[in-house]
Each structure stands twice: as C-alpha cells, then as structure tokens.
Design a binder for these strands. Structure first.
Length: 216
DNA sequence: GTATTGGCGGATGACACGCT
DNA sequence: AGCGTGTCATCCGCCAATAC
C-alpha cells in the first residue's frame, strides 16, 4: 500500500484520518471551483491591502475582474478557515495566517462545515465582535507601510477577458462533445459484441433477454 | 445492480446595520 | 422609511463509499 498524502493543514486528533470519501478540496488542498491559484493569491493580497470585507474597494481596483462579492466572500471563508468574518472586518491581515491557526483548532465546541469553523453559539454580540476585532488588530494586523506597499495586478481589459472566457467555453464544449462521442462509440461496440456472442450461443434469444430485463 | 448513507460545497434567503 | 451592503444559517444537489 502506498503512503497516503496528508496535507499540512490537517488537524491532529480524531479527524487526523484521510477517509476514502473525503473530497479533494477538503483541508484546503484544492480551490473552490471557479478559482485558480493565482486568483486566490490576488484575493489574499487584495484583502491585505484594502482590509477584510472591503469588497467595494477590491471590485473598484478590478484586480479580480468578474468575481462577485459572494464569490470573494466564500473564498475568503476558505482561506480564513471559518465562516464568520465579522471579527476581522476592515483589518489588514494575511488570511492564511488565521487559516493555519483555525486548521489546528479541535474540540467539542468546534463545528466545521466545508472545513470552515461555523458559529454554534448564536450570533456574536457587538461588544464581543469589537473585543475580538481589537485583539486580532493587535495580534495579526500588518503595518500600514507594509499594506500600502502591496501591489495588485493591473486591471485586465474587460473585452479581452470576455474573449478569453468565450474561447475557454468553446474549448470545453468541444471536449464535452469528444467525450460524449467516445461514450457512444464504446456503447455501440459493447452492444455489437453482445449480439455476436448471443448469435453464436443461440441459447439467449431476444425474448429471454426481454424477460430478464423485465424481472429487473 | 440498486438503495442508502455521509459529507462537500455552492446557492439562497433572512437578517442586521449604516447611510441618505 | 427605504435602500444597499455584508454576514450568517440553512437548503439542496452531487458524488463516492458502503450495504444489501
């Protein structure tokens, strides 16, 4: 048996088992559909520069052209390793640092969904959010000099992006067509083989096959 | 071969809050 | 009060493993 790769982010304790039905995206090994690795790094830099939750500024910068607030928020949750982002609102910090810490959290009070820690104790009070915010600011926020110096990629020409996406769509459609044709061909070959063997055998006639099919 | 189960992950609706 | 924005909880489709 070959060694099973266990991601670094996998927690210790009872869940430190790679089950056969764990999806590849579990443990943040892969990205959310629709996100490429460079895009994730741009989002990481963008939240470090503009502050977590400042989606309007990120959209305005056009560094992630085509991404919606919902998409960015979902990807941020994956990076942070928790669903609730209110306690980080506006902070200039590296979401991967928080994600690394959250990935190691274990215990009866830790409930996860999509590998993100979800809130189980009701909504946080404004005071609690404020308290956590100040704590995170002290502990994790990078210096102003640092986040101001972050450079984001120049906005791409929307027309060029559209053309590229159309090309990608055409490529995927062609690939789908090829796969469908391949399946059809394989089915036809299988069917012709079974017809051949039954005609040689002679014992399995159409009626018998139909009876067998009906019994199923 | 089919049904059941467990879990992932995107979509969505409800809600809170700030602004005008 | 109405609107826009952001957050959070829940729903539901899909997939793979397992049971029968």
């Amino acid at each position: 048996m070959t060694d099973v790769y266990k991601p670094r982010s996998m927690p210790v304790g009872a869940r430190n088992v790679l089950r056969s039905n764990d999806s590849a995206s579990l443990w943040n090994c892969t990205l959310s559909p629709g996100w490429t690795e460079p895009e994730v790094h741009i989002l990481r830099k963008a939240v470090m520069k503009f502050g977590i939750g400042n989606w309007a500024k990120i959209i305005e910068s056009q560094c992630l052209f085509g991404k919606t607030i919902a998409q960015m928020n979902l990807q941020l949750q994956r990076m942070l390793g928790q669903q609730s982002t209110a306690e980080f609102a506006g902070l200039h910090l590296d979401p991967f640092v928080i994600g690394e810490i959250n990935s190691k959290k274990q215990g009866p009070g830790i409930k996860r969904k999509n590998n993100c820690i979800v809130n189980t104790g009701g909504k946080l009070t404004r005071e609690e959010i404020k308290r956590r915010l100040l704590e995170h600011k002290r502990t994790y926020e990078i210096s102003e000099e640092e986040w101001r110096s972050i450079e984001l990629p120049k906005p791409e020409d929307p027309g060029a992006v559209l053309i590229a996406k159309k090309d990608e769509l055409k490529m995927l459609e062609d690939e789908l067509l090829r796969v469908v044709q391949k399946i059809q061909k394989a089915r036809e070959e299988r069917r012709s083989k079974s017809v051949d063997s039954s005609s040689v055998d002679g014992s399995v006639d159409d009626e018998a096959r139909e009876t067998k099919r009906r019994r199923k």
